[in-house]
Amino acid sequence: MKLRLDLQFFSGEKTEKATPKKKEESRNKGQVAKSNDVNTALMMLGFFLFLFFYAGTVGEYLMDMMSHVFTEYLLRDITIASVEDIMFEITVESSIVLLPLMAVAVVIGTAAAAMQVGLKYTPEAIKMKLEKIDPLKGFKRIFSARAIVELFKSLFKITLVGAVVFTIIYIHLDDLLMMYQKHPLDGFYLIARLTGLIGVASAILLVILAVPDYIYQRYDHEKQMRMSKHDVKEEHKKMEGDPRIKSKRRQKQMDMAMNRMMQEVPKADVVITNPTHFAVVLKYEDGSMAAPVVTAKGADFVAKKIKELAREDHIPMVENKPLARALFSQADIGDEVPEDLFKAVAEVLAYIYRLKHKI
């Protein structure tokens, strides 16, 4: 009894790698190995790299907009209609300038996610699930070991990024302090360049930190996906079918095939026997068949059953051991008699026809 309990305990341990079927089911549910840090870092890196080349356009737009505000908008009468027009124009112009930045972020974010998990439509992952808004489960997630690890990881990243930002600002501190002496456009370009530099440096740091996080997320996902030996066996049964059910199904198919074969015995012309081990049923219709056809055959118990039916229906039986053995081994049910056995079979049929006074 103790040994059986020990075996059950060890069979319940999740020591086996997830099967392809379980991986596919988890993927359909949106449960995949991915690191959000990778997405964030790559989005940030791509955004600021693009901003380096796009900053001139943004600067020109801001200068034009400020010029337009002081030369056009300030000369208008302040009414509800004029304010609505001004806000609409500013919104449209700002959207045109900001749209490329948002598009870059979306494209890079999508590409980063696809790079980790590929592209697959998973409607199961976006279904409304009430357990996701369960306060008790939410409280457990907040104070779980995983949440604590994420907290310390975030604090570590904030500390490193803060150090990078401080270093860059400290290096350019003199330029920032003297910015009041520069032209406004030069000051804008300085701030834009420093912002881009801080963004790119921080993004590169986050990309470096995201690599071990991605490796850990894959390891943790594989660990969560592990299966016990019992789970693997159960899945195999579901995929292949329960052996007992398969055995019953196979037995039923054999019984149906046997019944169909036995239905051919009363229509036969002759049964050639071994006499005890084999029985082969032959049928020949002159004009519609090129050669005699084996309509049923069997060995041992099946042969005995065929001979019983033949006696009941008065089907002639001929004992010919070599011919019965040869027909049983060389011809399947529905096959014509092999050519090398034509002569022997023809002699048997001629003998039967003579008995029936057919010739």
Rank of each mutant, 00 (worst) to 15 (best):
F52C: 04
T273Y: 05
K137F: 06
A290I: 02
A145F: 12
S144T: 13
D213E: 12
V265R: 01
I333S: 05
T273P: 10
D231E: 15
T276L: 06
L349Q: 01
A257N: 06
V106Y: 04
A113L: 10
L5H: 03
V107D: 09
Y284C: 01
F301L: 10
M258Y: 09
A163I: 15
T71E: 14
K153T: 13
M63P: 00
L5N: 05
Q217H: 02
E240L: 02
E240Q: 06
F278N: 03
D335T: 01
K137C: 08
A344E: 14
L209P: 12
V149L: 10
D335W: 02
R249N: 05
V294L: 12
V161P: 10
L98D: 07
F342C: 00
A299E: 13
V270Q: 01
S154A: 12
F301H: 01
T40V: 04
I359A: 06
T57Q: 08
I168K: 05
R354S: 05
K358I: 10
V302Q: 06
G241M: 06
S26F: 07
M289G: 00
E24W: 02
M227A: 00
L155D: 12
H221Y: 12
F53K: 04
L98Y: 11
P123L: 11
A210L: 07
F278V: 03
L341C: 02
F156S: 11
I352G: 04
M66S: 07
V117M: 13
K137M: 12
P123Q: 11
E72S: 04
P100W: 14
A145S: 14
E24Y: 02
A310Q: 09
H68Y: 15
Y73S: 11
Q31L: 11
P100Y: 10
L3Q: 13
G30L: 10
A192D: 12
Y353K: 03
H68I: 00
I86F: 11
M289D: 10
A105P: 09
I204W: 01
D85M: 07
A268V: 04
E89F: 10
G138A: 05
K23A: 05
Q263P: 09
L190M: 14
V97F: 06
S11F: 07
V38Q: 03
H236R: 02
L160R: 01
R244D: 03
E240W: 01
